[in-house]
Measured scan of single mutants.
Amino acid sequence: MALNTPQITPTKKITVRAIGEELPRGDYQRCPQCDMLFSLPEINSHQSAYCPRCQAKIRDGRDWSLTRLAAMAFTMLLLMPFAWGEPLLHIWLLGIRIDANVMQGIWQMTKQGDAITGSMVFFCVIGAPLILVTSIAYLWFGNRLGMNLRPVLLMLERLKEWVMLDIYLVGIGVASIKVQDYAHIQAGVGLFSFVALVILTTVTLSHLNVEELWERFYPQRPATRRDEKLRVCLGCHFTGYPDQRGRCPRCHIPLRLRRRHSLQKCWAALLASIVLLLPANLLPISIIYLNGGRQEDTILSGIMSLASSNIAVAGIVFIASILVPFTKVIVMFTLLLSIHFKCQQGLRTRILLLRMVTWIGRWSMLDLFVISLTMSLINRDQILAFTMGPAAFYFGAAVILTILAVEWLDSRLLWDAHESGNARFDD
C-alpha cells in the first residue's frame, strides 16, 4: 500500500549564491595573561575582544583620537594649579581661619623630617597626573615632529594605576569627618577644581587605549598563520617573532617567553612588605597634641575612634588600611606557593584573586592621604596640633611594595603550573 505524501511548494523562490571570495581570516594573537594562541577576527570600533580561555580583555573598544586626548590633557593642565594650590577646605580653629590644600599637606610631611613619605604622596597625587598630561601632550606634538614615541607609550600603561586623584578625593571626605570634632569646616574653591580634575582624569584614563596608539604610530604586520613560536610582548602586546637582537619589532624591548626574574622580584617585594606591615600596624601612625597632652593612634585605634562619629567612614578606612593590605599579602603568598608547588586545582579562583588584588591594591594609600591633609588643617603649635607617627613611612612603603609585587608577577606562570593543553579552566 503506497502512502500519498503531499508536496510542499515554497511560496518564495530560494536563491543560492556561491561564495565568490575567501572568507576573511583572523590574525593570530597570544593572550598576555595566559599565553593562549588564538585567531582574533577583525574588530570594529566600539567592540571589545576577550581571550577565549581566561576571559582577559585583549582589545578595548573604547578609543579616543589623539586630538581629543590632547584637549583633555590641556584642560587638566589648566585645572591643576587651582586643584593643588587653592584651598580645598576652610576650618575655623580657636577663632582663626585655616586653609588646607594639597601642596601644603605634602610640605608639612616633608617639613617634619619625613621627606620619603611626603614624596610618596607627591608622586601619586601630583607627579603621576602631571606625567600623564605631559605624556599625552608629548605624543600629540611628537607625532607631528617625527619624534620617538616608544618610551612614552611604554610608560603610559604602567602609569595608570599610580594616578590616585580619586583616592585622594575620598581622603578629603575622611579628613573632614575627623577634623569636624575640633573645628567648623567649609569647602574651599580649590575643592571644585579638584573634583573637576578627578572627573576629567577618570574619563581620560578610561578612554586612553595605549594598544590602539601603538597600532597608529607603529603598525606591524600581524601573524596570519598559526605558529607556536609566536611570542607576545608584555610592553606593547604585539604578537610576532623577535628581531635579530631578540627584541620586539614594535617597542624594541627584549621579547622573552616569560617575564625575567618574575618570581624572585615578586618574592622579594612580598617578604619586604610583610616585614614592614608589622611596625606599620604596631607603631603610632598619627599623633595629636591637645592642650599640651599627647595622644597617639595606631591604624586600628584611629579607626575605632573614627567609628564613634561615623561608622560608615570608619568601615571604608578599615577596608583600605587593614583589610586590603593583608588580603593582598595572603593572596600573593598563596599564588606564589601554588606556582612553586605546581598546583593544578582552583586555577579559576587564583586568576580571579590576582585580578582582584590588581584592582584594589592602590586604595591602601588612602590613610597616607588623610594624614597629609589633616596635617595641613590642624597645626596650632602646642594648643592643638596633628602630626604623623613613625608607622606612616612603614605603611606607605608596604603598600608600594605590594603594588610592585602584583605588577611583577607574570600571570602566565600560573598556567605553566597548571596542566598543559587546557582550553578551559575551572575549579
Score class of each variant (00 low, 15 high):
211 E>I: 15
92 W>S: 02
225 R>C: 13
365 M>F: 05
15 T>H: 06
292 G>H: 11
131 I>R: 00
135 S>Y: 01
75 T>C: 13
161 E>I: 14
58 I>Q: 03
193 S>Y: 02
224 T>H: 13
127 G>V: 03
79 L>H: 11
17 R>I: 08
190 G>H: 02
116 I>G: 06
346 G>H: 14
192 F>M: 09
39 S>Y: 11
175 A>R: 01
318 F>C: 11
109 M>F: 05
237 H>F: 12
165 L>I: 13
272 A>S: 14
52 P>I: 06
194 F>A: 08
6 P>Y: 08
23 L>T: 08
272 A>Y: 02
337 L>W: 14
108 Q>L: 15
260 R>C: 09
322 I>Q: 05
49 A>V: 07
244 Q>W: 15
256 R>M: 09
375 M>C: 03
162 W>L: 03
325 P>Q: 02
8 I>L: 07
289 Y>R: 03
66 L>G: 08
16 V>A: 08
307 A>G: 14
2 A>K: 09
258 R>E: 08
37 L>D: 07
259 R>K: 09
226 R>A: 15
223 A>T: 13
40 L>Y: 07
191 L>D: 04
251 C>F: 00
5 T>V: 07
53 R>M: 08
230 L>A: 14
193 S>K: 05
129 P>C: 10
313 V>D: 01
187 A>L: 11
317 V>T: 00
393 F>L: 13
398 A>T: 08
33 Q>L: 10
133 V>C: 08
72 M>W: 02
68 R>H: 03
410 D>V: 00
31 C>T: 00
195 V>C: 12
40 L>D: 06
273 S>C: 13
385 A>H: 03
206 S>N: 15
274 I>Q: 14
420 S>F: 10
9 T>Y: 10
4 N>C: 06
150 R>G: 07
93 L>H: 00
342 K>T: 11
34 C>S: 00
268 A>T: 09
381 D>K: 03
154 L>W: 01
208 L>A: 13
324 V>T: 07
10 P>I: 05
273 S>M: 03
29 Q>Y: 05
34 C>M: 00
89 L>S: 12
151 P>M: 03
95 G>L: 06
40 L>R: 12
128 A>E: 01
12 K>Y: 07
24 P>T: 07
35 D>C: 03
211 E>T: 08
308 S>N: 12
225 R>T: 10
362 R>E: 05
420 S>L: 12
96 I>W: 03
138 Y>M: 06
106 I>R: 08
278 L>R: 02
297 D>M: 08
210 V>T: 14
383 I>T: 02
61 G>R: 11
341 F>S: 12
411 S>D: 07
374 T>V: 11
243 D>F: 07
92 W>L: 02
74 F>M: 08
276 L>I: 11
37 L>C: 06
348 R>C: 11
150 R>T: 06
347 L>I: 12
235 G>M: 02
239 T>Y: 09
4 N>M: 08
36 M>S: 07
354 L>K: 10
86 E>L: 03
17 R>P: 07
311 I>L: 14
262 S>D: 08
132 L>N: 06
118 G>Y: 01
299 I>L: 12
150 R>S: 04
10 P>E: 07
327 T>Y: 12
107 W>R: 14
97 R>W: 04
112 Q>A: 10
403 I>S: 03
246 G>R: 12
2 A>I: 04
327 T>M: 14
128 A>C: 11
360 I>G: 10
137 A>C: 09
183 A>C: 05
61 G>I: 09
214 W>Q: 11
69 L>I: 09
153 L>H: 04
365 M>N: 09
296 E>A: 13
399 V>D: 03
334 T>F: 12
112 Q>M: 13
263 L>P: 06
185 I>H: 02
255 L>A: 12
336 L>D: 01
324 V>G: 10
214 W>I: 15
294 R>L: 04
